[in-house]
Write a protein that binds this DNA or RNA. Structure first.
Length: 116
RNA sequence: UGAGUAAGUUGAUUAGUCGCUGGUAUAUUUCGAAAGGAAUUACGAGAGGAAAGUCCGGGCUCCAUAGAGCAAGGAUGCUAGAUAACGUCUAGUGGGGGUAACCCUAAGGAAAGUGCAACAGAAAAUAACCGCCUUAUUUUAAGGUAAGGGUGAAAAGGCGAGGUAAGAGCUCACCGCUAGUAUGGUGACAUAUUAGGCUGUGUAAACCCCAUCCGGAGCAACACCUAAACAAGAAGGAUACACCUGCUCGGUGCUUCUUAAUUGUGUGGCUUGAGAUAUAUAGUAAUAUAUAUCCUAGAUAAAUGGCUAAUUUAAAUGACAGAACCCGGCUUACAGAUUUACUCUUUUU
RNA sequence: GCACCAGUAGCUUAGUUGGAUAGAGUGUUCGGCUACGAACCGGAAGGUCGGGGGUUCGAAUCCCUCCUGGUGCA
């Protein structure tokens, strides 16, 4: 299995934010952008106003964990950035909610492979 | 039995499964001329008591492996000790609080000098407004007087007796203050005693004085490699300029400033250290010394997670909370559980 | 990670060094003026001076500590 590639540079993020299309769920929201390469890139951006450092780390882990579940089903050449929605109580977010939300977003964005 | 004080410990554990980070491997596969890189497999490891706030002190790096003097600035401030160092800690002294166990304490100097003390009050430091007393020319004036009044946060050592025209440390006893002497203590200081009658309010967390200490910047420091860029203008050029507060001395060097440009977020720095644990010795203690054993995160858009089951529990769906060069402290946050020592109270003997 | 700055009325701010009534503008509100409204005139309310502790007779101001917001550094 390939290692998940992460977005790193600031301009990569701003590229996705400006050119990508926006989808929103109950708890999280996402920007999806077709980067015309063979690899998928994942980016996570949690604002420092959302909570303390250990809470932000927890959200990142949950997002990463649920992304790995769907990674094989996503068509290649996609950059996707997940954000936490504003005005969400960060301590009440659980794994089930994140997983459902992510599935809905991926279906809306029509980037899942059709067979599965 | 109830209430409380101090010092600590702990901060869930176990199993299965899917994954993450870096380490080791004469392992396997693959790329490469090689150095080496990538993937897989196996093994064992992987976040706290505060990792936090960044409030102090050091190590380390660079600035000259940072020098001398004066100034300016900053910090600390009872005593002795501990420490690499400290504004930290330990043990004491003085003061304050509590019935007590015990707790708090930036605690040098106001007699070196300067400033300030609103309102009220006669007066806020050269004290006479009312009052009291004496004298005279008696609805007034002069003088004496700090016992009484009222104001204020603060009013001129306190209280009692003698004394006096009225009073006053004017005199005396006790207490307080200042100075000396003796004894005890390493010392802060304590105790005893003698003398002075005692004029000197508060504020130094106001300026300041005294004593001690302090060069600056910070791992985004700094070093190395690859690629790109390496342009324009200005200043100075050895009696000058720069070297990160000023001046002088000394030393070193050829640079300094502005605009433009400013990549690979590459590698090292990076974890064996004033390290941890146990025992013994010295010390009231902080701590030191010796011996033995151990190696215990090193990421960089940033690793500890998801699911299932069980146990302990009042609660396990969690208290506070996430290492970023490393240590010693301080401060702040914290559900609870638990150990030791001690105090007061109630009852009984 | 490191270094640094700020917080005063609903909003913008003065006062902070140098201590003793917290003061303006704007907004709100009441009254007047007007046929009505704006403008104008007069009045009023509104402040734990970010929170807590200390020094002092007395703290927005001095000292310590915490909270919130912001800035810079490869």
């Amino acid at each position: 299995m390939k290692k998940t590639k992460m977005l790193k540079k600031n301009y990569e993020f701003s590229n996705v934010f400006s050119k990508g299309s926006y989808y929103s769920g109950d708890v999280i929201e996402a920007f999806i952008f077709n980067n015309r390469s063979n690899n998928n890139f994942l980016g996570l951006a949690i604002s420092s106003k959302a909570g303390h450092a250990f809470q932000r780390n927890r959200i990142k882990r949950l997002l990463r964990e649920s992304y790995w579940l769907y990674e094989n089903q996503i068509i290649s050449g996609i950059s996707i950035v997940f954000l936490l929605k504003k005005q969400v109580d960060i301590s009440s977010v659980k794994f089930d909610i994140v997983k459902k939300d992510m599935k809905r977003i991926l279906e809306k964005g029509k980037i899942l492979k059709e067979n599965i």
